[in-house]
Simulated scan of single mutants.
Amino acid sequence: MDGETRREEGQGRDAVPLFEPELVSASVAPPPEPYRPMARRRLALVVAAAAVLGILAGAGAGYQVQRGRTPTPLPPLVAAAPVQPVGAAPDRPAPKAADDRDAVYDGNLLKLLLPTPKGAKETARDWRTQADLADDYVSSEDIFTELGDKGFRRAAEARWSVGKAEFTDTAVTLTQFRDDEDLNTADMLREREYSDGAHQSYGTPVPGTLDGEVRPSAQPYDEGDVKVYVGQGMARVGNILVEVYVSGVRPVSRNAVMSVITKQLERM
């Protein structure tokens, strides 16, 4: 009994493992190795290096062949070499005042304004301050602030009228802005080009300008006993905004406004 017990205890110590090696199937394939993309990259680098070496070898061989050849002479010149004329060069003509843009931009704006036509009565020709320009609008405080934000520098205006009972009033204003950092003049022109509701018709480009425009009158303004038609024209020359307003008791045509602004631009 004691011997059998010892044999059972010995068998317990030398017990067979639960999973013996022969129980694992030998037909199961081993797990694949992880994909290594760098191997493909190294292969590409080897191919590229071989291609570069091949190009260098070909270029070297071509250079060696070309080096042994006799140089090909260049063809003669078709025309003779220019000859420097003898004597001093002719005097350069004096520049025109119209070609000096600084003289226009820094000069007297009053002298740039159109003269009053013959037969018309001049009603104004003077400098206008920032406050003067703002007073022409209903929202004068907003316009005053806007002019300041846009770098208002100075302004001048000429105004004349024709007729009495059936009058026609023309106003030409030159307003200069500071465009050192921003395109203030172009911004002001875009804002002024919008018609005042239905009082002006569609715009027509002013020839020779980038963004100039003319708008004839449409519906009149009701000024109590009188109905007033207003046509407008806008353009710019450098940092000077050109504004033309033609008003009257009769509709203002497109040609009437275009004629005034064209003459004003030609003068500048």
Score class of each variant (00 low, 15 high):
residue 150 K to I: 00
residue 235 A to L: 02
residue 9 E to M: 06
residue 67 R to T: 06
residue 10 G to Y: 03
residue 175 T to D: 03
residue 268 M to H: 09
residue 181 E to M: 00
residue 199 H to G: 02
residue 124 A to Q: 07
residue 179 D to I: 01
residue 214 V to W: 02
residue 83 V to N: 02
residue 74 L to P: 08
residue 69 R to D: 13
residue 10 G to L: 15
residue 230 V to Y: 03
residue 68 G to E: 11
residue 29 A to L: 11
residue 146 E to G: 03
residue 190 R to E: 09
residue 165 A to F: 12
residue 61 A to V: 08
residue 20 E to D: 07
residue 189 L to G: 02
residue 71 P to Q: 10
residue 179 D to P: 05
residue 142 D to F: 10
residue 217 S to D: 05
residue 252 V to Y: 02
residue 177 F to P: 04
residue 32 P to Y: 07
residue 238 G to R: 12
residue 22 E to A: 05
residue 239 N to R: 15
residue 215 R to K: 15
residue 76 P to F: 03
residue 268 M to E: 06
residue 88 A to Y: 01
residue 9 E to D: 13
residue 47 V to H: 05
residue 68 G to R: 14
residue 206 V to T: 04
residue 54 G to S: 06
residue 155 A to K: 06
residue 68 G to Y: 00
residue 109 L to M: 15
residue 61 A to H: 11
residue 210 L to I: 06
residue 183 L to Y: 02
residue 60 G to W: 08
residue 97 A to K: 13
residue 214 V to P: 01
residue 250 R to E: 11
residue 93 P to Q: 09
residue 52 V to H: 03
residue 141 E to D: 15
residue 53 L to V: 12
residue 225 D to Q: 09
residue 191 E to I: 08
residue 110 L to M: 14
residue 129 T to W: 06
residue 149 D to Q: 13
residue 102 D to N: 12
residue 183 L to H: 01
residue 237 V to H: 11
residue 25 S to K: 09
residue 197 G to K: 14
residue 12 G to Y: 07
residue 107 G to Q: 13
residue 114 L to C: 11
residue 69 R to W: 08
residue 136 D to V: 00
residue 138 V to G: 10
residue 237 V to K: 07
residue 50 A to P: 07
residue 239 N to G: 01
residue 8 E to M: 10
residue 122 E to Q: 15
residue 56 L to P: 03
residue 159 R to H: 08
residue 261 I to C: 04
residue 16 V to T: 09
residue 157 E to W: 00
residue 258 M to I: 02
residue 203 G to M: 08
residue 8 E to G: 00
residue 166 E to W: 10
residue 183 L to N: 02
residue 233 G to W: 08
residue 13 R to K: 11
residue 162 V to L: 15
residue 146 E to R: 11
residue 164 K to L: 14
residue 266 E to N: 09
residue 3 G to H: 11
residue 9 E to P: 00
residue 182 D to N: 11
residue 99 D to H: 11
residue 76 P to H: 04
residue 173 T to F: 01
residue 13 R to T: 13
residue 110 L to S: 04
residue 66 Q to P: 01
residue 227 K to R: 08
residue 60 G to V: 11
residue 108 N to V: 09
residue 110 L to G: 05
residue 170 T to L: 03
residue 248 G to F: 04
residue 54 G to D: 06
residue 50 A to K: 05
residue 35 Y to I: 14
residue 161 S to F: 03
residue 208 G to K: 00
residue 25 S to F: 04
residue 98 A to L: 15
residue 44 A to V: 06
residue 221 Y to I: 12
residue 98 A to I: 14
residue 115 P to C: 07
residue 257 V to H: 03
residue 186 A to M: 12
residue 253 S to V: 05
residue 262 T to H: 00
residue 53 L to T: 07
residue 183 L to C: 00
residue 79 A to C: 07
residue 200 Q to P: 04
residue 24 V to I: 14
residue 137 Y to E: 12
residue 103 A to Q: 12
residue 79 A to T: 13
residue 67 R to V: 06
residue 21 P to T: 05
residue 252 V to T: 12
residue 179 D to V: 02
residue 109 L to Y: 10
residue 251 P to V: 03
residue 86 V to E: 15
residue 26 A to L: 15
residue 148 G to E: 10
residue 59 A to S: 09
residue 3 G to Q: 10
